[in-house]
Each structure stands twice: as C-alpha cells, then as structure tokens.
Design a protein around this nucleic acid. Structure first.
Lengths: 199, 199
DNA sequence: TTGACATTCTAACGATTGTTAGATATAATG
DNA sequence: CATTATATCTAACAATCGTTAGAATGTCAA
C-alpha cells in the first residue's frame, strides 16, 4: 500500500478511536513510520486528511446504494428478504470495518461539527431508514402485508436494528463478541417477529 | 452560585459539546471569568473536574432511581402508566438538561475511555432497559398482558425509545424542535401500540 | 487593628501542537 | 551520465497545552 493510503488508514483507525482533535499528526506519523512533514506532501493540512476520508466513504456507500437499488440485488429471491439485508446492509455496511470506523468518527464529531452532524444524520438514520423501509414497502406491494401493517412493522424493525447498532457496533471497541451479539439479537428479533415469512 | 459550581457547570457545558480533551482549562476559565490557577485551588487537576461531574451525576440518578422504585412513584395510578414514564423517565432523565449533557459527554468519551464506556453502557442501555421493562413486567403481573407478550412488547418499546434518544436527544445540539420531535414520536408510538390501555 | 485563613491573581515552566523551509534521497527520463 | 520529478527527511517556528510557585487580595475572629 502506498504512503497516502497508509496515512488515511492509520488516521481513520486513530480518529475513530479518539476523535479528530486528540490525535496529532505526530501520532499518525509514528504509527505509519514517517516524519511529520511527509504528511504535508500528500495532504494540504490535517483537515484535508479528514475530508479525504469522507470523500472515500461517500464514494464507497454511493456505489453500495447503487447495487442495493439495482434489480440484481433482489434477484436471488423473488422478493426482498432478510438474507438480502444480511448480505448487503449488515455485512457490507453496518459490520464492514471501514464503514464502522467512519460511523464511529461521525458519532464522535457530530456533537460539535455541524457538517459532520449532517453526514451523521444521513448515514446513521436517514439512509438506513430508507433502505429498511423499502423492504417492507415491497412486502406490502407484493400483498404479503397490508400497507399500514408494513409501515408499522418496518418502523419497529428499523428502531430495533438502530438500537442494536448503538448498543453493540458503536459501543466501545468492536469485538467479535459484540459482532456476534448484534447478529444473534438481530436474527432472533427477525425470527420471532417474521417467522411467518421466509423461515 | 459559587466558583466551584460555576466551573463544573461551564466545564460540563463545554465537555458535552466538544469532548474532554479539546476543551482546555483556559477555555473554561475564559467562560467563567477567572484565571487558570484558580481552577487548581478548587480541583486537583483537569481530570478531577471530570470525576466530580460523574460523582454528581451518579448521586443525581441514584436518588432518581430510589424514587422510581419506591411505592410512591406508582401511586397516582394503580398501575404503572406511560404518564409515569413521561414524568420520571422522560422529563427527569432523558430530557433533563444536566442528564442530557452527561449522556453527551459519555457518548463522546466512551469510544476511547474504558471507564466511561462502562458508565455509558449502564446509563444509556442497561438502566433504561431495566426501568422500561419493569413497567411491562408489572403489566403481565396485573394480568393485562401475557408474560411472553409483555416481554416482546417491552423490548420493542425499549428499542423504539432508544432509537429516538439517539436520533433526537443525542444528535447535534438539543433544540426545542428536537425535544418536541422526540416527545411526539414517542407518544405517537405509544398511542398506536398501546392505545388499548390508558387511552 | 492584627493575625489567620480562604480565595484569586500574575507570571512563568516544559511539553506538545499544526505547519513550514530547505536539504536529501530515490526513481524515471533525456 | 546528467537532469528532472517524486518522495521523504532534518530542524525549526509560533501557538497552545496542563500545571505550578508565589504574590496579592478579601473575609472574619481575636
């Protein structure tokens, strides 16, 4: 991996753990194994590192969203399924190491950074809401649920997953134990609430 | 208010917005209107300010919990009610300015501070879960709900409130708009899910 | 008024911060 | 080989950090 990417990866790893301000350029350089001035060859300043991380993240999730909303994503079963949510929404977004770190970073910085607060609202609440609700909307279109019931059930599902995200995926260090707890409790909720469908 | 209390209040206000490290002793002193060295007359060091805040918070919520679990709290209706949740759990905990600031502080610091991470888990997940579930446990004891149904419904309720807390009460600055959104959506959820009871 | 104590001040310390100028090394091009 | 461009280095800067010693106040009892 080239130096620029190593700086970005190390910076994200440290920012997501301690926040932006508490991590110094020297901290990052020490971990990467370069001198401070080298950073300024690749980036305009410290803020530029943060900006670059968000550019990469939004490219990443934009391409992810395109896949999600393309017909292919829904092909392996004729209707949207919780297997689909597992593969795309859980594994490639909520549980993905890069995305998880970016969410931690947004979580720390949102309280005092207005720009990041907007990104935080979008990527932790609005887009997940859209994605999860689209599943239940399809369910009502397919006649599996009534429109009102699908909306109510969708909101309940969204709230439960959101709670699990904050409780397990954005609470202290992300350990294998917490990942498992998230998956187990999510699947247990799905099983007990939607056992009638795609058992 | 005496100087020590003014330091604590100002520090909490700034810590909860920016986090512990980014706020300097000089920032706090500038806002209070004193010189830096005065802080060290009242506190051992910067960390001591943070520790004092947590001591005050835990004293505050401990006394709150005592009230919650005392018979008096349940007296104004023969069964636990959502009005009770409104008065004690919402107004005096989740929406209380002091508690809200402490929760923000814990939210920021928990990702890299192991001690605070434990407090965060306790005061944002475990205790709220206990409090909310105790309501539904009573419901099943009173025969209003079956044991299984009360547990499932309780978890759904807890998840929904937790989601609303993160979405509205710990997302950027706490405005009147967000407070209202929290209350409205919570009450709307209660109404649509539990309209059968205490309409 | 004097003395004792509580409270706040002035002024500085060593360490760390983001950033920069300019030298040095490495690699590619003629 | 000489030249140019790319990449990393050394070494320092002004500013800010938490913290401290000691002088200057204010308050109240003797």
């Amino acid at each position: 991996m080239n130096t620029k990417d190593r700086i970005l990866e190390t910076a994200l790893s440290m920012f997501s753990e301690h926040g932006y301000d508490p991590v110094s350029i020297r901290d990052i350089c020490g971990a990467v194994g370069i001198k401070e001035s080298t950073v300024y060859y690749h980036f305009k300043n410290k803020q530029d590192i943060l900006d670059s991380l968000f550019i990469r993240f939004e490219e990443h999730v934009d391409s992810l969203l395109k896949v999600l909303h393309s017909p292919d994503a829904w092909n392996h079963s004729q209707s949207p399924s919780f297997g689909w949510i597992d593969t795309y929404f859980f594994d490639q977004y909520l549980l993905d190491p890069f995305c998880n770190r970016m969410m931690r970073l947004m979580l720390i910085e949102q309280l005092h950074n207005k720009e990041i607060q907007q990104k935080y609202s979008r990527w932790l609440f609005e887009e997940p809401y859209r994605i999860e609700m689209s599943v239940f909307e399809t369910l009502s279109q397919l006649g599996i649920m009534s429109k009102e019931s699908s909306e109510q059930t969708g909101k309940g599902f969204y709230a439960y997953i959101t709670m699990l995200v904050f409780k397990y995926l954005l609470n202290g260090k992300l350990t294998a134990r917490k990942k498992n707890a998230f998956c187990e409790e999510a699947h247990s909720y799905i099983a007990s609430s939607f056992g009638f469908w795609e058992g």
